[in-house]
Simulated assay, not measured.
Amino acid sequence: MSRFSWIAALLCALTILLTPAAAPAAPSSPGSSEGGTVDLEQRLEAANRAYIDAQNKINASRQRQAELAAQQAALEPQYEKLLDETTAVSVAAYQRGGGLRSLSSVLDSPTPGVFADRVSMLELVARREGEHLKRLADVRAELGATKAAVDDEVATQQAQLAVMAKQKADVEAALDAAQNAEAQRGLDVAKTTSAKAPKVVAEPAPRRPDGSWADETCSVPDPTTAGCLTPRTLHALQQVQKAGFKHFVSCWRPPGEPFEHPKGRACDFAADAKGFGGIAEGASLEYGTSLATWLVRNAERLGVMYVIWFRQIWTPAAGWHVYGSGKGDPSSDHTNHVHMSIY
Results as ranks from 00 to 15, higher is better:
62 R>P: 02
82 L>A: 00
62 R>M: 11
81 K>D: 10
75 L>N: 03
98 G>Y: 01
97 G>M: 11
86 T>C: 05
96 R>C: 09
84 D>R: 13
73 A>I: 05
67 E>G: 07
64 R>T: 14
99 G>Q: 04
80 E>Y: 07
58 I>W: 09
62 R>N: 12
83 L>T: 10
70 A>Y: 07
65 Q>K: 13
97 G>Y: 12
71 Q>D: 10
90 S>I: 01
64 R>E: 14
88 A>R: 13
60 A>K: 03
66 A>K: 15
68 L>T: 08
91 V>F: 01
83 L>Y: 10
76 E>R: 03
95 Q>L: 08
64 R>H: 13
96 R>V: 11
79 Y>A: 01
63 Q>E: 10
82 L>S: 01
85 E>V: 12
90 S>N: 06
85 E>L: 14
65 Q>G: 02
59 N>P: 04
78 Q>L: 13
69 A>P: 07
75 L>H: 01
78 Q>C: 06
95 Q>A: 09
61 S>F: 07
58 I>N: 04
70 A>F: 06
91 V>C: 00
96 R>E: 13
67 E>A: 15
86 T>I: 05
84 D>H: 11
99 G>L: 01
95 Q>R: 12
99 G>P: 05
71 Q>A: 03
69 A>M: 08
92 A>M: 10
68 L>Q: 11
90 S>K: 04
88 A>Y: 08
77 P>G: 13
93 A>N: 10
89 V>I: 13
78 Q>R: 14
58 I>Q: 14
87 T>R: 14
67 E>W: 12
81 K>C: 00
69 A>S: 15
96 R>Y: 10
69 A>T: 15
82 L>P: 00
78 Q>V: 14
61 S>E: 11
68 L>V: 11
73 A>P: 02
64 R>C: 10
72 Q>E: 04
59 N>G: 13
89 V>Q: 08
97 G>N: 09
91 V>G: 00
75 L>S: 05
92 A>R: 15
86 T>P: 02
58 I>V: 14
78 Q>S: 12
90 S>T: 09
76 E>C: 05
60 A>M: 03
94 Y>G: 05
63 Q>W: 05
86 T>G: 07
85 E>I: 12
94 Y>I: 04
60 A>L: 03
85 E>Q: 15
76 E>D: 02
87 T>H: 12
66 A>F: 08
